Simulated assay, not measured.
Amino acid sequence: MLFPTIKTPTFSAPAITTSLRLHHLITFSAMLLLLVSLSVSASSKHDSHHQQLPTSVGLHGMLLFGSETGLFASHLPMFHAPHNAQVVFQLRFDNPRVHQHVIEALSASDSNPIWTIVPNRFDLAQLNPQHDSPISQLEVDIFEGHFERGGQRQHQQQSLIVEKMHIFNPLSMEHQQQPNASARYIAIRSQPNDSTQFYVKHLTMRPDADHLLKVTHASQQLPLVIDIPLNTGLHATTEQLQSAIKTMTMKQESAADSAITPTRIQPLYLELNELK
């Protein structure tokens, strides 16, 4: 009986060498990708922790402002621990009656009264959404007026829910060497087309100005960020902000709509002494 002859494949030395080189190249590439991935992950984790505010437990008074479209709070910052952070967020009070009372009080007249809140002692750093243990609820007393400057308590131990963080900006406590050449203002609003919106100055280094303005009867979408050159002083004037908004909205709108501008800009709050 005849059996078929089975030919054993043969490989030349060059083919074996090429195969080994390819195998090593693939292995090396896989290891390199793994190392890069680990490095990026570690770097991201480091940056995230670097940007977090250190533990900052204290009584953190806040300015309360808003309109029918939403309520907001702005932490009253200082350039020393534990108050060295600019924090602005949208909120609602758990009690609907209290929530409506505050809205009506803030919207009742053109006088733009000052209202403040004082939460129970807590760690301000935990309001950062990137914190390892973030919080979204506070127990606060509500004051008509500034709580440290003769304000009257209107409601006590009310639950506050943080709905959206607009600004969480840890502040350096170093003195700046040169005055800022410009001031950046950030829009605070519930929706881009709200008829009442607010602009808050983005804080940098001491000295600075905690500056908040109210824009009413806005009939088109306002810029989210406005940079205004500063010749003197620490903050822009109402007239500068009005002019900047008009210029930026004219670029966004058609010629027929370019005359539609916010009818009124009013200063709500300005603090200089606490930010020297």
Rank of each mutant, 00 (worst) to 15 (best):
T55A: 12
V40I: 13
L35G: 06
G61L: 09
H49T: 12
L127N: 02
W115R: 08
L38P: 01
P113R: 03
V57K: 00
N128F: 00
R92C: 13
Q100N: 14
T116Q: 09
W115G: 07
L32S: 15
G66D: 02
H83D: 10
L127W: 07
R97C: 06
S111N: 11
G66H: 01
D94K: 08
N95V: 10
L106T: 11
L35C: 10
F122S: 11
Q126E: 10
V36L: 09
S136Q: 11
H46M: 14
R92P: 04
V57A: 00
H49R: 15
G61I: 14
A105C: 11
S109P: 06
H50E: 15
L33Y: 10
V57Y: 01
L63N: 12
P77N: 05
I114T: 15
P119Q: 07
V118K: 13
I117D: 03
S111P: 10
D110G: 15
Q100V: 05
H50W: 08
G61W: 04
F79Q: 10
A81C: 04
R121E: 12
M78I: 09
K45P: 09
V98E: 10
H49D: 09
S107V: 13
V87L: 04
M78L: 10
A81M: 05
M78R: 15
P113N: 13
F122I: 07
L35H: 06
R121V: 13
S109Y: 03
H60I: 04
L76P: 07
S41V: 01
L124R: 02
H49F: 11
V88Q: 10
L64Q: 12
E104M: 08
M62G: 05
V88P: 08
G70C: 14
Q51T: 13
L35W: 09
M78C: 13
F93K: 11
I117A: 10
Q137A: 11
H60F: 03
S56N: 08
L35D: 06
D123C: 07
L34I: 10
H60P: 05
G58I: 08
L33R: 12
S41E: 04
R92A: 12
A81I: 03
S43R: 07
A85H: 13
F65D: 01
H101W: 08
A42E: 14
D123E: 15
F89G: 00
R92V: 03
H49I: 11
G58Y: 09
M62Y: 09
P113I: 09
S111Q: 15
L32M: 06
H131W: 03
D47I: 10
V36P: 11
I117K: 05
I114E: 02
H99W: 14
K45M: 10
F89A: 01
G66V: 00
P82I: 12
L53W: 02
F122T: 01
P77K: 02
H101M: 05
S67R: 07
N128M: 06
V36G: 05
D132G: 06
V88D: 15
A105K: 12
F65M: 05
L71C: 13
N95S: 13
L53R: 00
V57E: 00
T55S: 14
D110Q: 14
L38S: 14
V118S: 14
P134H: 02
L59G: 08
L53Q: 00
P54E: 01
S41Y: 00
D47V: 06
H101N: 06
N112T: 14
V98N: 11
D123K: 00
S39N: 03
N95K: 11
D123Q: 02
L64M: 15
L91G: 11
F89D: 00
V118W: 06
S44W: 05
